[in-house]
Nucleic acid binder design. Structure first.
Length: 231
DNA sequence: ACATTAAATTCGA
DNA sequence: TCGAATTTAATGT
């Protein structure tokens, strides 16, 4: 079923988690709130698919999505986890091109979206919004470069540490804060390790005082050390 | 793979 | 709407 059909308006507390809303002028904000839709997606559901025309710019309100390139073409796939606060697809929205990746729900999640039309309208009129989008593009570029390095790491503990470091990005994923809600199984899937091995890595990282393992999530204690972690 | 523990859900008042 | 009982989910080894 189409996502749009079961979407609804956003609740006030959901709006609080949308970082770029705060930078808009009241009139702009009103227009956006009119257009903004929220939908609940189930495990495994695709939010957008490679090759589909772009209709929305999406953001994660709650839950966890994964971004991957198309499996149909080449084999090697890179996954990126998309935690709360993540807004994605602006590159394709800007160019009005078809989506270049699949976005799939790793767990039940709440996803928000504004139409391409409203996105364009904001770009045309709000300098603050333009600044947000530029910053977003720039930070994401850094993320992808970092992801390539992570792919080459062989030590499981390092892979886990660096991947976690990426997910705790305060600018790209402001909704995460100090506590990332992710299961060890989900993390294993994103990093490419077994749940058992992830558990082992997390235990090590916790012993080093870099993170704290909680039920259903991980808390950062020292983000800098997590990012630089090399065993 | 299994045992333990935490959280979510159900159900009866 | 409260909390105890039950089921489901996540963790640790």
């Amino acid at each position: 079923m189409a996502l749009l059909a079961r979407s609804r308006a956003a609740l006030p507390d959901e709006l609080d988690g949308i970082p770029w809303l705060q930078v808009l002028e009241p009139a702009e904000r009103r227009r956006v709130l009119d257009d903004l839709r929220v939908v609940e997606v189930q495990v495994g559901e695709l939010v957008c698919r490679v090759g589909r025309p772009v209709t929305f710019w999406f953001g994660v309100i709650d839950g966890l999505l994964k971004m991957s390139n198309d499996t149909a073409l080449g084999v090697p796939i890179t996954f990126t986890g998309l935690p709360p606060g993540a807004w994605f697809g602006e590159g394709t929205v800007l160019k009005h091109e078809p989506y270049r990746y699949n976005i799939q729900a790793l767990r039940r999640s709440l996803v928000a979206g504004i139409s391409v039309h409203t996105f364009d309208w904001l770009l045309d009129r709000s300098i603050a919004f333009n600044r947000f989008v530029m910053m977003q593009l720039n930070e994401r570029l850094g993320q992808f470069i970092g992801a390539r390095e992570i792919d080459r790491l062989t030590q499981p503990d390092r892979r886990v540490a660096r991947s976690l470091g990426a997910l705790f990005h305060p600018v790209l994923y402001p909704g995460v804060g100090g506590l990332l809600r992710i299961t060890q199984h989900e993390l294993g899937y994103l990093v490419g390790l077994s749940r058992q091995r992830v558990n082992q890595a997390l235990t090590t990282l916790q012993a080093e005082g870099v993170i704290r393992v909680e039920y259903g999530g991980v808390r950062v204690l020292d983000l800098e050390r997590l990012r630089r972690y090399d065993g």
